[in-house]
Amino acid sequence: PQECLLLEPGLNEIMANSLDYNERLWAWESWRSEVGKQLRPLYEEYVVLKNEMARANHYEDYGDYWRGDYEVNGVDGYDYSRGQLIEDVEHTFEEIKPLYEHLHAYVRAKLMNAYPSYISPIGCLPAHLLGDMWGRFWTNLYSLTVPFGQKPNIDVTDAMVDQAWDAQRIFKEAEKFFVSVGLPNMTQGFWENSMLTDPGNVQKAVCHPTAWDLGKGDFRILMCTKVTMDDFLTAHHEMGHIQYDMAYAAQPFLLRNGANEGFHEAVGEIMSLSAATPKHLKSIGLLSPDFQEDNETEINFLLKQALTIVGTLPFTYMLEKWRWMVFKGEIPKDQWMKKWWEMKREIVGVVEPVPHDETYCDPASLFHVSNDYSFIRYYTRTLYQFQFQEALCQAAKHEGPLHKCDISNSTEAGQKLFNMLRLGKSEPWTLALENVVGAKNMNVRPLLNYFEPLFTWLKDQNKNSFVGWSTDWSPYADQSIKVRISLKSALGDKAYEWNDNEMYLFRSSVAY
């Protein structure tokens, strides 16, 4: 590609939709070469300064400071330590791993069909083939991996386009969902002041979706909304933040926050679980009234959910574990990228498509890292959202599997949720969690119950496949010279610098 592309739109479109291996590689590498390399010296300084700040406030390091958001002291029976968070994340991840490994094996087999000769049947997945710029969410792999393609499509993007949905309609439908469970409408100022579409040439905007509580009843969302099912669900997520903000607005200023950061992320995700169900999509006209649910549509639905929800958990866990180790000084600065990709291979089963030396800073190419967000919130929120969903479905008197529950129109479920939201940070999160779900610790069981039918199906699908991955295989081993030459021509001086062995191999191949 010759034109100058922004991340959004532009590069993200390539990473969402392109099936051209080399075009995807160009976009993936260009973003890291342009952005990651510029941020490397800044990120090194950032780590030093943030650690100084944390230690001045009596924390061991900046990662310890972040984990302090979960700490509860002096509340008998509800205490929770920063170290306990690490333990809980690690042991819940071990419980999730078998499901993830089977999802990984299934996706690898489907990617082998889409990119023959580029995928190893026992290796890691190349990082640039996973549906977005970071491989964070695998949602866009659904069209390549759908188990029963002859069934009606449960990705309702086409239906939204056919019905001329726009950003306003998407957010109005999200608002209807919250109102149906007894939560309030958005304010008039929300509709007047939010930026729900890309302003285009009028001004440059950071398009990463964010929710804003500017105080004095001024709530806004910034999002360059596209007419897709993914953005339909994202709208519910962002509006969930606003509902939380509005619910605790009466609290004293210092207590106007989520019980912990994971709670804030979980609220909209609960609504997304219901909004994505075929039952709900039928009720708002995005699935045909004669759409029939059966075992095959159930597996299609659960796989689509797993690509988004299960596929991202190792990504989140590994990223934050790397940062915690960096802040603690356990990874020397001259080994940041080496350790990043070692951990990516070992924990996530994902491999870099071309080698990256220590001039890169791949983590900082992600919005949340370069903008100083702690990231473990996206792991804890996933466990909380299924715990909350299970409890709210019980309040809504849902009968049947958890993945079929739609809590819309249940004011009982809405009241149970609101009673927790309005507390803000005035009560320990362990107590707030217990008030809703009857337990005071994160628990992976509801998530595993939700995906149980899919897990059973995946194990059957993978019975003749290798489950797990070898960390030795690299996608650039066989194609390295071709890849390096093409990237050198595209990126010039910003391309990865060849070492002596690679230059010798190149000259030998040319001479041959």
Rank of each mutant, 00 (worst) to 15 (best):
R220C: 00
K304I: 07
S374R: 09
G189S: 00
P252R: 02
F219L: 04
E192P: 06
R256E: 06
H237G: 11
F137W: 09
Q251S: 04
R220E: 00
T210R: 07
T308M: 13
F253A: 04
I309T: 13
L214W: 01
G215C: 13
Y378W: 11
D372K: 07
E269M: 09
H368S: 12
S374I: 09
A250T: 09
A250S: 12
H237D: 12
D213L: 03
F219C: 03
F367I: 07
D218A: 01
T139K: 11
W212A: 04
I309V: 08
D245G: 07
G215D: 05
F375G: 10
E269F: 07
A249H: 01
M229I: 10
N153I: 09
A249K: 00
L233S: 05
T308K: 11
H241Y: 08
E261C: 11
H368N: 08
D213W: 02
H368Y: 10
Y378Q: 07
A249P: 02
L214S: 03
P209M: 02
F301D: 05
Q305C: 07
T139V: 10
R136V: 08
Q188P: 15
S374Q: 13
R256Y: 01
W212C: 04
F301M: 08
F219W: 03
A249R: 02
E261N: 11
K216D: 00
H264T: 10
D230E: 11
R377W: 08
H237Y: 10
N257R: 14
L233K: 08
E265V: 11
S272V: 10
L233I: 07
S374A: 10
N153Y: 12
P209E: 07
P209G: 06
D230F: 12
H241N: 12
T210E: 06
L233V: 07
H264D: 08
D213S: 06
R256M: 14
S374G: 11
E265H: 10
Y378N: 05
Q251V: 06
H368K: 10
R220L: 00
F367Y: 11
H237A: 11
E261Q: 12
G189W: 01
F137H: 06
D213T: 03
R381E: 07
N153V: 09
D230L: 10
R220F: 00
M246P: 00
D218L: 01
H241V: 13
Y378K: 07
P252V: 03
F375S: 08
N193L: 15
R377P: 12
R381A: 13
W212Y: 05
N257P: 02
Q305F: 04
Q251A: 06
E192R: 06
T308G: 12
E269W: 07
G189D: 00
R256V: 02
N257L: 10
R256D: 00
K304D: 08
G217N: 01
N257F: 11
V206H: 07
A249C: 05
L214V: 05
K216S: 00
G189A: 02
Y373R: 11
V206Q: 11
F375C: 07
F137Y: 09
R377S: 08
H208G: 05
T187A: 15
H237K: 13
H368R: 07
D245L: 05
H264Q: 07
P209W: 01
F375W: 12
E265L: 08
K304H: 11
T210Y: 07
L233Y: 10
Q305E: 11
N140C: 05
M229E: 05
E261G: 10
F367W: 12
E192L: 09
F367L: 09
H368M: 08
